[in-house]
């Protein structure tokens, strides 16, 4: 369970995130929606202890994230391209992440074989460095790498952006399968209301750092969200 209490983040007295209380139970697939600057990435960065909260704390399975690093062994994430190592080939990158997560080369090869469809022969065996791949292929690499080593908490910031339609549909299927697993908590954010309502069980809407909606996803959710964002 991820539990945020009294969480705020200020930059120069500018309050960018203010979450008095938010609980994400184990196994839930959780969607975060909001316009630019709503605080989505800030929230994810706080969970990953990449930035420090101004007040409050986040517990990831009862571990206070900025006190201990033990949450790292079961948490994985892909926030943006700065999570990629440009001078490695995709294979080398997967092996690198794999080694950090206790997987050997053979494990990774087996793991990667299930993504052949998504990779579409453009990622593996290309003899190209990650920095020379297209944005979309970089993103695919980062997303797949975030799934290495059976993590129990997966955090993906805007996983659908920059992907081609085919991959978006495949990714949606993949994320739904992950969401169905009892022990995997999936945290994603998206600007695509359709995609996110399909994939997640619960959607939280952020506006200027505050939670303004917290809905259990149902067939009516998409309509509700569209109405909310139509001004």
């Amino acid at each position: 369970m991820i539990n945020a209490t009294n969480l705020t983040k200020k930059y120069n007295n500018n309050l960018v995130l203010n979450i008095p209380e938010l609980k994400i139970p184990d196994g839930q697939s959780f969607g975060l929606v909001g316009n630019n600057g709503a605080g989505k990435t800030t929230f994810f960065n706080l969970i990953l202890d990449l930035i420090r909260p101004t007040t409050g704390q986040i517990n990831n399975k009862d571990i206070i994230v900025n006190k201990s690093e033990d949450w790292k062994s079961f948490t994985s994430s892909f926030i943006d391209e700065s999570f990629l190592i440009g001078y490695l080939t995709p294979e080398e990158y997967f092996y690198f992440i794999g080694e950090l997560r206790g997987q050997n080369k053979a494990d990774i090869d087996t793991f990667l074989s299930q993504f052949e469809e998504i990779f579409n022969d453009e990622i593996l065996g290309q003899k190209k460095y990650l920095r020379d791949l297209s944005k979309g292929n970089q993103k695919k690499t980062g997303l797949v790498a975030a799934l290495i080593g059976n993590p129990e908490v997966i955090i993906l910031d805007e996983p659908f952006a920059n992907l081609d339609p085919t991959t978006q549909i495949k990714l949606k299927k993949l994320l739904k399968e992950l969401a169905d697993k009892k022990h995997v908590s999936l945290l994603i954010s998206s600007h695509d209301l359709g995609h996110i309502t399909e994939v997640t069980d619960r959607i939280v809407v952020l506006e200027k750092g505050n939670i303004v909606k917290d809905i259990v996803t149902s067939p009516e959710t998409l309509k509700e969200l569209e109405d909310f964002f139509t001004i």
């Binding site: 190592i85 440009g86 950090l100």
Partner: peptide, 12 residues
């Protein structure tokens, strides 16, 4: 520095 965030969020 380019991928420092990755290293810091990994099991490192």
């Amino acid at each position: 520095s380019a991928y420092y965030k990755l290293l810091m969020s990994q099991n490192v």
